[in-house]
Design a protein around this nucleic acid. Sequence first.
DNA 1: CAGATGACAGATATTGAAATCTGTCATCTG
DNA 2: CAGATGACAGATTTCAATATCTGTCATCTG
Lengths: 195, 195
Amino acid sequence: MASTSEILTAERILAATEEVLRRHGPAKATVVDVARALGVSHGSVYRHFRTKAALREAVTKRWLDRTSQKLAVIAAASERDPEARLRDWLAALFEAKRHKAGDDPELFATYTVLTDENGGVVGEHIAELTAQLTGIITQGAGSGTFSVPDPAAAARAVFQATGRFHDPCYAREWTRPGVGEEFTAVVDLLVRGLR
Amino acid sequence: MASTSEILTAERILAATEEVLRRHGPAKATVVDVARALGVSHGSVYRHFRTKAALREAVTKRWLDRTSQKLAVIAAASERDPEARLRDWLAALFEAKRHKAGDDPELFATYTVLTDENGGVVGEHIAELTAQLTGIITQGAGSGTFSVPDPAAAARAVFQATGRFHDPCYAREWTRPGVGEEFTAVVDLLVRGLR
DNA sequence: CAGATGACAGATATTGAAATCTGTCATCTG
DNA sequence: CAGATGACAGATTTCAATATCTGTCATCTG
């Protein structure tokens, strides 16, 4: 059906897997489906990914990385005021998650299942985001905007305290009216605490 | 078996339901089981609770209320310093949840299922806790310890920002080493923000 | 010979028939 | 006659048989 003469790469398999997951959902997406979508035998898929779990993990990492990369741009804008950058970064994280959840709830639910089964990859993602936050806060501490003894600890605290606005387990709250104000209230409190 | 000549009250039914839930778990606990534990017919249970869902909701409310009542004692100690009281209240909430989750993980998992299916009761519980927090913060604002324009909004922000240390969806993090320090870091940041 | 294939064994998921449960109510009992 | 009972219909769950999937590997192909 979808057979193309292109070489079978890991990237093509990942893209096909994402599409199969979108169509069938996490419970019914099989390796055979992925192979069929690519017009190859399932044995060929196993040449690139040792197990189905490894394939799903790779797809999950790919999805999470897309978000970290967007945020890295804000974190790296070192010419800007650290406080504004911190606020923007947190707002961008919230917006990214909120749109993912709101625009295509089914796909978001699918990825929620995937992240639940891939704690390791999620851990790395959180470490990456926390590192970006640490960068912003360290600069703020250097410029005197913030007054914190341990920027890494402060970054972790800020990330954890804003969990309600980025952790998937709160996704259904993100459509309620007033979340915007709640987000602002929490961020204001945290920024005041950092100064 | 467990037949007694006592009058069948709502309270006795709730206690029996809790025991059946503890024994069988949320998926297998039936109204027939509850009736059997009490030595009555299941029709008698339906005389006190219109549906199985109403019975489970009442048990959930009872469980949540036990926590709010403990915390109310701390919130009401108006002779004490508001900042210390706020710290104690948050620590007590964390400790209460952490012990519930750590001492009997199976029962905690059972109640997690129950709270998931009873959003309304959980909402009331959160409203009650937020009201207690508002009381502490309002006093702190009055005595000049805290500087907040809107104590109720600040209370909501503090409650949400500490979600990681009381929301059941984070229960598995509560056993990790270092959570205590993470909790302190978040609370310190929030208290600094309130001053 | 690098890369793809598909038959195969064991693991997992689906399905539909049988068993159990929920909620009602006419009837019973102290 | 207030309160308890248990038979009952429809909804839900269980269970075992059947089908599908995962992961391997001997074989094939360009």
